[in-house]
Nucleic acid binder design. Structure first.
Lengths: 111, 111
DNA sequence: CAAAATACATAGTAATGCAATGTATTTTGG
DNA sequence: CCAAAATACATTGCATTACTATGTATTTTG
């Protein structure tokens, strides 16, 4: 079970999928980085590493899909909150169309 | 529409997904390379390049998920047919479980 | 008879997940 | 009380994989 090939494959599946998941999570609420990791773990079967999340969020920001703002805490380390931009929302919609088409095809292949 | 980001993203989604699709296609029949590209184009919205398919099939072979045999043609270039091994079938089943879990999570996020 | 299609293959490039590592603060359990 | 775990950010370098470009060779089509 869970052979080396399957593990590597799961890692490859995350390429692209993670960005899609994160944009979906940010659709209705804003979250900070650490919280995003919790959300991913809570709502999916995907394991996400810190070394994956932070560079990914920076890419999404650089591409103009999200913005971020630092929020000071009464106690503790400041949090960087991310929110979708209009471009981010439009892009997410395009991605959803592609995903649903792909998924429909795959379900036909599987059954 | 279809911004540069979305195009790059689609390419990333293929990493992993293509192997999964090809193994699914080979589940019930054996196919040769060129034919596999046709099958992918026919049954999915995915574009697959020759430079993607042949190295990918070699990886799957190296990993022991498929075997191949050359079949001479009465006329024309010989074809290399691929078929799933037992390991390939077992692996595919593991992949399907992972994919279905992932897909269930994503559908919850999307709706 | 030239172009397109069929059929295989590889080299080099770009993109991305991840382990490892680093910094700093706060909470928790013994 | 204090060490470990959790919280919260971030970067570097490595491994993997899709794709463009290129190559070879045969057959079909307009």
């Amino acid at each position: 079970m869970n052979s080396e090939f399957v593990q590597k494959w799961q890692s490859q599946v995350k390429k692209g999928t993670l960005a899609f998941i994160l944009l979906n999570i940010l659709k209705d609420n804003e979250f900070y980085g650490y919280e995003l990791m919790e959300q991913v773990r809570k709502f999916t079967t995907i394991e996400i590493a810190e070394g994956t999340l932070y560079p990914l969020m920076n890419r999404l920001k650089k591409e103009g899909l999200v913005t971020s703002k630092w929020v000071e805490q009464e106690s503790g380390i400041p949090r960087k909150y991310y929110q979708l931009t209009e471009t981010g929302v439009a892009t997410l919609i395009e991605m959803r169309v592609y995903w649903q088409n792909l998924e429909t095809s795959i379900q036909k292949l599987i059954k």
